[in-house]
Design a protein around this nucleic acid. Sequence first.
DNA 1: CCCCCTTACTATCTTTTTTATAGTATCTAT
DNA 2: ATAGATACTATAAAAAAGATAGTAAGGGGG
Lengths: 105, 105
Amino acid sequence: MKNKEIVIECSIEKALNIIGSKWSFLILRELFCGTKRFGELERAVQGISPKALTDTLRHMEANDIVVRDVYPTVPLRVEYTLTEKGQDFHKIIKEMKIWGSKWGG
Amino acid sequence: MKNKEIVIECSIEKALNIIGSKWSFLILRELFCGTKRFGELERAVQGISPKALTDTLRHMEANDIVVRDVYPTVPLRVEYTLTEKGQDFHKIIKEMKIWGSKWGG
DNA sequence: CCCCCTTACTATCTTTTTTATAGTATCTAT
DNA sequence: ATAGATACTATAAAAAAGATAGTAAGGGGG
């Protein structure tokens, strides 16, 4: 008899899965400065494609890290804001910033 | 006239690129408890394949996060240990652990 | 009216990365 | 002789990521 699919996640794995990908870190970095629109994020996050940006924002929304607000103006206006959960990620980003500037060459 | 390939990396991006992937976080988690062998890591890191483990360890070695020591016994024995740079990553992992246990459900 | 402009995405196709799985080398022990 | 342990490689299949073009919904200019 075999255990099937028993996955015990540690807190670090949980955090990694909620975040999703490296793009999330960079989007978080931008949103710590305040609410931003899709286009602003696209310009601020070097090298991200619209698909990656959409996918990442959707993932972050599904995991309650950001909130998406749509204003049905023309042209359409969509704003992204951090939730408390997202804000709380700040300590991690801060430590990464410190480590990155110390060891990043 | 176009700028080509001018990439300005922020410290967070630097940190992310040095780390490489989510597997590195989980390997780091194990190595904070002390030196470990290939097989020990394979068993400790849920779901990693030998290829992923090898690739990740090679990447970490190339980025001076771990040191690889080979003892030419039979069977072969290979040990992985964190460098100072690797040890210093502890603060980040610690914050992720806190965040993960708070928000990870 | 006709055409272009903006914003925020989708759709599609290609390329890259990841994963699963089997196999290799080396020597010991039975 | 054959099985076992360790630390990987190799290869093919599957999944994810990236590049690029296109769409919808009006607004404004000529």
